[in-house]
Simulated assay, not measured.
Amino acid sequence: MGMSVTISAATDLDAEQILKLQYLCYQGEAELYGDYSIAPLTQTLAELRAELGAGCVLVARLGDEVVGSVRGAAGPGGAAVISGMIVHPRMQRHGLGGRLLAAVEARLAAEGATRYRLATGHRNEGNLRLYRKWGYVQVASEQVTRKLTLVTMEKERREQDAESAQGAAGAALATTSR
């Protein structure tokens, strides 16, 4: 029998696990750019708890363990920003990142999002590949430091997404994979 991973809304009780997982997941990113002072590695528990109360934060659980998370916020004019997607290294390359992305998109669509925007570092080929696979295209890039350029990617919500957003948001949060 296989493992079951569920995706649901994060609660304040998840904050510490999310922060620890975020610290683990962003070590590779920091190494890639030679910068261990990036925001995900310096974020405090209080700052993360504030994010939990301000937007949509989802977690992927394997039993009681948080093995993935993603954040999203609906903005003005139908724009939504997706950020902070993390998947435990042992769970990567098994489709969990795509499931988290689909779940947060569905949740944001139910809140009226008509397009989604996210950003990643220019050297993070895994993220760039995943986002392209899910229909995101590069719309901008910004050199943040000598070593880091942020690539901003965006996609429009598809019509079939709009028609099923209400049902999909609930279904995505209750989804289970075996």
Rank of each mutant, 00 (worst) to 15 (best):
P89D: 10
R117E: 13
R49G: 10
P76D: 13
Y33N: 09
N124R: 05
H122S: 13
R71N: 11
L130G: 01
Q27A: 08
Y131M: 02
E31R: 14
G135E: 04
G72R: 04
S141I: 07
T120H: 08
Y36A: 14
T120V: 12
S141H: 11
E16V: 07
A140M: 08
N127Y: 01
A110C: 11
G98R: 15
V70E: 02
G112N: 04
Y131Q: 01
E31N: 15
G126Q: 12
R99N: 09
K20F: 08
E47D: 14
A15N: 07
M91T: 04
Y116E: 01
R71D: 00
Y131G: 01
S37T: 15
A140Q: 12
I82V: 14
Q27R: 14
L48Q: 08
V57S: 08
L100N: 03
A54G: 09
R107Y: 03
L96R: 00
P76K: 14
G53C: 09
E65Q: 14
V81A: 14
G78F: 05
P76W: 14
Q92E: 13
L24N: 05
R117G: 07
L96Y: 03
V104Y: 00
R117N: 09
G75K: 15
R129W: 07
E65M: 11
R90E: 15
Q92M: 04
E31T: 11
Y33E: 10
V104R: 02
V139I: 14
V70Q: 02
L128Y: 08
A60L: 02
L130Y: 04
A30P: 06
L41W: 04
E65A: 13
Q138R: 13
A109V: 06
R129C: 11
G75F: 06
Y33A: 00
D35R: 09
S83W: 02
R115D: 11
G55R: 06
I86N: 02
R71F: 12
S83R: 09
D14G: 03
Q43P: 01
Y136K: 06
L108I: 07
R61S: 13
E47Q: 15
G34F: 09
R123W: 07
Q27G: 05
G28H: 13
G84H: 00
G77C: 09
R107W: 08
W134S: 10
L130F: 06
Y26T: 00
V57N: 10
A73K: 15
E51M: 13
K20W: 01
G72C: 04
E29I: 10
G121L: 14
G78Y: 06
C25W: 05
I38M: 14
T44N: 07
G55C: 10
S69V: 03
G78M: 10
T120D: 05
D14V: 05
L118F: 03
G98N: 12
L96W: 08
W134L: 10
E51Y: 04
G121W: 11
V87S: 09
L108G: 00
I38T: 05
A46Y: 14
H88E: 08
Y26C: 00
E65C: 12
H122G: 02
A50E: 14
Q138F: 02
Y136H: 07
V70G: 03
